[in-house]
Design a protein around this nucleic acid. Sequence first.
DNA 1: CGACGCGTTGAGTAGCCTCAACGACAGTGG
DNA 2: CCACTGTCGTTGAGGCTACTCAACGCGTCG
Lengths: 254, 254
Amino acid sequence: MVRTKRGESPLATLAGKYLTLNEDERELLGSLNDQPRRIARNSEVVREGRAADNLFVVQSGWLLSYTIMPDGRRQVLQVHFPGDIIGFCDMPLPSFTYELKSLTDCSLCMLTQTHVQDIFHKTPRLTGFLFSLMMVDQKTHTDRLRVLGRMNARERVIHFLLSTLVRLRMIDQADGDIFDFPLTQFDLADAVGLTNVSVSNALSGLQEQGVLKRSSGKIQILDEAYMREAVSFINRFESIDISWFPYMPAEKRK
Amino acid sequence: MVRTKRGESPLATLAGKYLTLNEDERELLGSLNDQPRRIARNSEVVREGRAADNLFVVQSGWLLSYTIMPDGRRQVLQVHFPGDIIGFCDMPLPSFTYELKSLTDCSLCMLTQTHVQDIFHKTPRLTGFLFSLMMVDQKTHTDRLRVLGRMNARERVIHFLLSTLVRLRMIDQADGDIFDFPLTQFDLADAVGLTNVSVSNALSGLQEQGVLKRSSGKIQILDEAYMREAVSFINRFESIDISWFPYMPAEKRK
DNA sequence: CGACGCGTTGAGTAGCCTCAACGACAGTGG
DNA sequence: CCACTGTCGTTGAGGCTACTCAACGCGTCG
């Protein structure tokens, strides 16, 4: 497992992929490291109050956000990795409308409105970056619409694994084509709109075909090219461009 | 059919639901009315170049954005109504990744980067509003994930019709519980991940049950409460709050 | 050790899909 | 004006994918 740079916040690592941070920006992102909230594996993350009051930045660990329907059906909305911002797009809404659960031990940073406003006012480039992240997020959601609306079990699983791999690479948490995979097959099923049984069958089939390998909570992608082809995969993180972002009030810092 | 206020742009109408526009803001939104591009019914809207160069604001008419997979499977990503902004979240991306088709005769306004920057610089409140719209958009997408991942044919159709009704009401284009519906059943099917046959069956079933009525391109919702209950419908547009938005460089106008 | 969660596998089922035929309708051209 | 054509919606027959239900093995944890 590749390690993140010592002491650097995952969000900073992520941002560093797209822009070279200056000292102020680096410090601002670093300050988010203060007093992370620790969450044990497999526990519900309780959030209170208005949406915007409870923005999280994942420092370490995996989380799952999901909705549950009255009859028990569950839909996983997103898997959250280090560097992810949770709840950003809930800001204009009056309350949270989904559950949050930790898959592994986690540490989360709470962001208050004040923090957000701080970033927005001080570093327009970071602001642009944040919004770009959100837009890419939206893109990955529309990609998932295609998956859930039009793909069969096998393709759904392939797409999910690929997008997981790609996202983990962004935060240097994939070891080539091997990565941790703490989801249960129930979790995966609820993410891609299947049952655990179908997921099991799909995974077994892929393994038998030599496309992937599983061992003790890890997954290895053996034939990435084939998988990408099979689902017409697009890596949305490859080419984010934040230069368009217009929030640049007269270059103050240089 | 209820009419929009004479000459007012649909985006202004929409914005007016959430905030009281001052003269400058109203003028800025109104200026978008200049030189709309007219699109005939059932034609492909061609877009060129980088994503951000081709932002559209729908002035009138319905459009469909969708992706097509190599084998011909189609997934409708969104139905666009007057007031909708198309392509906003493509701005940080290098190119468009979906198709756009008109369902009715349309008129579209092109927004260039300059326009966007203009709005962003001059009216922070409108900026906040735009971002809030985008966030709500994201929310409706996650709602659709639940639909495509976990609902049966009947529920999918119900949810789609409800969200259509709610959005049309926002722009005063629903006459109580009656609204135009120019989609074919193929379109609807590709939107909710079914086939036209299943859609036909679902619609017939609902009509037989007395839940809705169809006649000549219009749909009437007869039992809205039942439908909302059946799919745990949440109206995301009900309570957008833009007060949180931090882009307020020292109240210049008052 | 027992209890529990997780993954696997099998048998049977149900919902949706595919294929197909047909009627209604609008647009087109003679 | 009327065939001709293509699109759209409906309905039926049959098939397939994924679901439900269930049993079992395995590992972990108390």
